[in-house]
């Protein structure tokens, strides 16, 4: 009985202490294992995207939509690659440690903190690459004195949300092969159902509410003041149709010449943009706050599911 009473009084490390122990392990892994490679990889990807879509980002409506979509995509890509294998590759080890007293909440919390650090680094790297590539940042800011900080928060939340989704998958599947098979499906789902780049309607449009890409893209377009930007599609189409003849005349060419002579080109582009405004991309803090809110909500949902699925790790087959 004395022994039993003694055992009952003994306390072991709680969740906070265990989180710190695992955080130490993860940061050591960043140095000794290949985890650090995700940082230069994010720089390379950001460089490629800036090279392709950076020129018109936050300058024209089309450039902003395409560029924001590309930025959201690289954030999702980075997030997915950060954590898609982190749990599944050490699943038997977690099972052993769970048996000897590991709290799953502490384990996931350590991953959440560590991944937040990685995502923050990647966001800073992406913004820095954009700056080097002379990408124009939005002229107006919403919450802070510098629009780069506003943009940085959105990029961080997109990356972190994708990271947590991948963490959830990593906690759910049992093999790295399964994780790497699921990942492309998730990625395609995010791209197709981003709700801005591809035209969707009906129930398909409702599905977009469940994607990180939709909320990320909407926040980026809002912060880029999409609705105040000129639209160039009409002008470019007119230029392509310049030589079209009708009854021996070239009406499009004549119209273009008149616009140029009267120096109304910018006005036309602005007017064209006004006709294609989208209320969800309004330069409004409420819009952006709503997007951030959804991203934060998903972060907690994904990490919660990761915890729940890992709680069943003892049922893994030997």
């Amino acid at each position: 009985m004395i022994m039993a009473e003694k055992n009952a009084k003994i306390r072991h490390q709680g969740r906070v202490s265990q989180t710190l122990i695992y955080l130490g392990k993860l940061f050591r892994m960043l140095v000794f294992q290949n985890d650090w490679k995700v940082l230069p990889m994010s720089a390379v990807i950001a460089g490629l995207v800036c090279f392709v879509v950076g020129a018109n980002l936050f300058k024209t409506m089309e450039g902003t939509l395409m560029g924001s979509f590309a930025m959201a995509c690289i954030c999702i890509w980075n997030g997915f690659f950060n954590s898609i294998q982190v749990i599944v590759r050490e699943r038997p080890i977690i099972k052993r440690e769970h048996r000897s007293g590991l709290h799953i909440t502490a384990y996931v919390a350590a991953h959440m903190i560590y991944q937040a650090f990685l995502c923050l680094c990647q966001t800073v790297i992406t913004l820095w690459v954009c700056h080097i590539a002379r990408v124009t940042f939005p002229a107006r800011s919403m919450f802070f004195s510098n629009s780069v900080i506003d943009l940085g928060i959105t990029l961080f939340l997109i990356t972190y949300c994708a990271d947590m989704m991948a963490l959830m998958v990593s906690a759910f599947v049992h093999t790295t092969t399964a994780a790497m098979t699921v990942m492309p499906f998730l990625l395609i789902f995010q791209l197709v159902f981003s709700g801005g780049f591809f035209s969707l309607s009906g129930s398909a449009l409702k599905v977009t509410n469940f994607t990180i890409a939709k909320w990320g893209l909407t926040a980026l377009c809002s912060q880029g003041d999409y609705n105040s930007l000129p639209m160039v599609t009409l002008w470019n189409t007119m230029v392509k149709m310049e030589n079209v003849e009708y009854d021996g005349l070239k009406p499009v060419s004549q119209a273009l010449n008149t616009i140029k002579e009267q120096n109304m080109q910018d006005e036309l582009l602005k007017w064209s943009g006004t006709q294609n405004q989208n209320a969800k991309y309004d330069f409004s803090p409420d819009n952006v706050k709503k997007c951030w809110g959804f991203l934060i909500l998903y972060i907690f949902v994904y990490s919660g599911i990761a915890v729940i699925s890992l709680e069943f790790i003892d049922r893994d087959r030997r």
Binding site: I10, H12, Q13, G14, S17, I21, G24, K25, S100
Partner: peptide, 15 residues
């Protein structure tokens, strides 16, 4: 050393 130290922290009583 770190593997064993972490195991000690996890398995030995907190006090």
């Amino acid at each position: 050393l770190l593997t064993l130290s972490d195991a000690a922290m996890m398995r030995l009583p907190a006090d």
